[in-house]
Amino acid sequence: MQEHEYALLGGVNRAEVGRYLGAIAAGVSAVIVFVLLTVVDLAQQFGIPTNLPPAVLSLVGAGAVFGALYWIFDRHAWRWPYIGQLLKVPDLAGDWQCDGQTLKPDGSDSYGWEGKVTIIQSWDKLRVRLKTSQSGSNSITAALIHDEADGYRLLYNYRNDPRIGEAELKSHLGFAQLVFSKDLRSAEGEYFNGHGRFTFGTMRLARI
């Protein structure tokens, strides 16, 4: 499974971030070109033979600079504390210990289970991977919500596939909702399954 795009609700719009990066890229490109041309001009004044191929200028054009800036932003810069707070996007990437509780239709406990959740996240893509002793699941779509009252809320639906030999389990689709603490060290939520396995319950996550 590959990472997929995810929606951002309550944070800074991605299109707005792209406009800011575009403006910065244009400015940076202009400065670099100006410096290169100035160096060439000074070299010629001192009689130093110089040749600045057009290909060099194209490498520092606004488009190329934007691509480099976006890669840095997508992989690293959005995680920096002050930038992350400004964008209202939490860094959830990493491994989490998951303690789940499946419930009966009347809401009473049925049975407990344990697993490990791995969240892979960049600025524009996300993947939630849950592994247990019996099965594994991967997120298909997701949305991340900035909730000023409760913290950050992650909504995602997933596909679960049982391990070989688990005859009683069937592949199924499900939905989960997790609310993360403000320090991003724990989360609580709930899930429900359908299209192959009709169960529901609660989940508690603790960052490993």
Rank of each mutant, 00 (worst) to 15 (best):
A77I: 10
W78D: 08
R79A: 05
W80N: 04
W80C: 04
P81I: 02
Y82Q: 12
Y82N: 11
I83P: 02
I83R: 05
G84C: 02
G84K: 03
K88H: 15
P90D: 03
P90W: 02
D91P: 00
A93G: 12
G94H: 02
T102W: 07
L103M: 11
G107F: 11
D109F: 05
S110C: 08
G112P: 04
W113C: 10
W113K: 10
G115M: 08
V117P: 08
Q121P: 07
W123N: 07
L126D: 10
R127T: 07
V128C: 15
V128K: 14
R129V: 05
T132I: 03
T132H: 10
S133A: 14
S133G: 12
Q134E: 10
Q134P: 01
G136D: 13
G136Q: 15
S137M: 12
S137L: 10
N138Q: 13
S139P: 12
I140K: 13
T141A: 14
A143E: 12
I145A: 06
D147M: 06
E148K: 09
D150Y: 05
G151D: 02
G151K: 02
Y152A: 00
R153C: 02
R153F: 00
R153L: 06
L154T: 05
L155G: 06
L155M: 07
L155V: 08
L155F: 07
Y158F: 15
R159S: 10
N160C: 08
N160W: 01
N160A: 11
D161C: 02
D161G: 01
D161F: 01
P162C: 11
R163P: 00
R163H: 15
E166H: 10
E168P: 01
E168G: 08
E168H: 13
L169K: 15
S171N: 09
L173Q: 08
L173K: 10
